[in-house]
Design a binder for these strands. Structure first.
Lengths: 174, 174
DNA sequence: AATGAAATCGACCAGCA
DNA sequence: TGCTGGTCGATTTCATT
């Protein structure tokens, strides 16, 4: 069976190694990377640039500790919407733009949206849920508190199954 | 009412401006930042270092496009566990370490874990769910497909409510 | 696609308010 | 403690292979 993986950019093991590294820590020096990969600094830099230009690396960002802002409370809110109108396309955007909302998923199933939000206090969470309910087209919400988060491994490459990793490499062999 | 916000690091408006900027794009030059904030390059650099040392900025990482790896499928899986044993502490870690699992939340409520996973194919998702079910202590799972994601705004500072933002600044005035 | 040299930018330091 | 200006080292760029 033919893989449906249509790679915009051919990637080899070296690319995956570079990506995996800078995904965890972009503050690694070119020299360290070059040493680890047995490449010249220029070669590493060349590949990094290509990965950025081709969009494989969408950008570089600082990771901020939510606790430094007192954002100690995380909630997951299931939102169901009325399906009669064509609202659902906009509602996702509206949810995403509410202050405190970190991530919005539009899902198949009885629940339409899953909203992950991060706030400082219960009051802020209540306000947020009120705002969600007030959105036009929102039918019902149900929230649960998050007691603990596990997201230590934010790296996509280290998170690939062997099969998935192979599919990426195979797609580049053409 | 006294805020429970115990800030490790005092933050002023300039800090928030810097953080907000590098959270979106760390590839901005010191000079650009300095110009935008009417500061010297050294001052910006000094503050950035302090923010890193104090842990407000946990690190810098490259953001990789999942689609470049063919990871076009996202699922949210609710996992309930048997509560008799003390397994639940470990199960979170075990879930998080499964290949394809992006994020794990341990929640209060009838569902115990919410697992967000990203894979290439339905087969990979089936495998993953099989692995989840096979974990000792896992009772029941229920998955839904994600049709669309909204996470354009990955910046914590731009995501703060006015109230939350004020709480951060106020906590530093002491 | 990768290299080495030249130009540019960021990291660090001593000193100052 | 926060910032300055200058130096050194690292990164980016580019002509070349």
């Amino acid at each position: 069976m033919e893989s449906t993986l249509h790679t915009r950019q051919k990637l080899d093991e070296t690319d995956l190694a570079i990506i995996g590294r800078v995904e965890e820590d972009f503050d690694v020096s070119l020299e360290t990377l070059a040493d680890e990969l047995d490449l010249s600094k220029s070669a590493v830099h060349y590949r990094l640039n290509k990965l950025k230009d081709s969009g494989v690396i969408k950008g570089v960002s600082a990771d901020v500790d939510p606790l430094a802002f007192g954002l100690e409370m995380v909630a997951i809110t299931d939102v169901s919407v009325t399906h009669e109108s064509g609202y659902s396309e906009n509602i996702g955007e509206e949810l995403n733009e509410l202050a405190g909302v970190e991530r919005v998923y539009y899902t198949m199933g009885d629940v339409d949206f899953v909203v992950v939000s991060r706030v400082q206090t219960r009051d802020q969470l209540n306000d947020l849920i009120d705002q969600i309910v007030a959105l036009e087209g929102v039918n019902e919400t149900s929230s649960k508190f998050v007691m603990q988060e596990f997201d230590a491994d934010s790296s996509l490459v280290s998170n690939l199954t062997d099969e998935a990793r192979q599919a990426v490499l195979d797609a580049s062999k053409r």
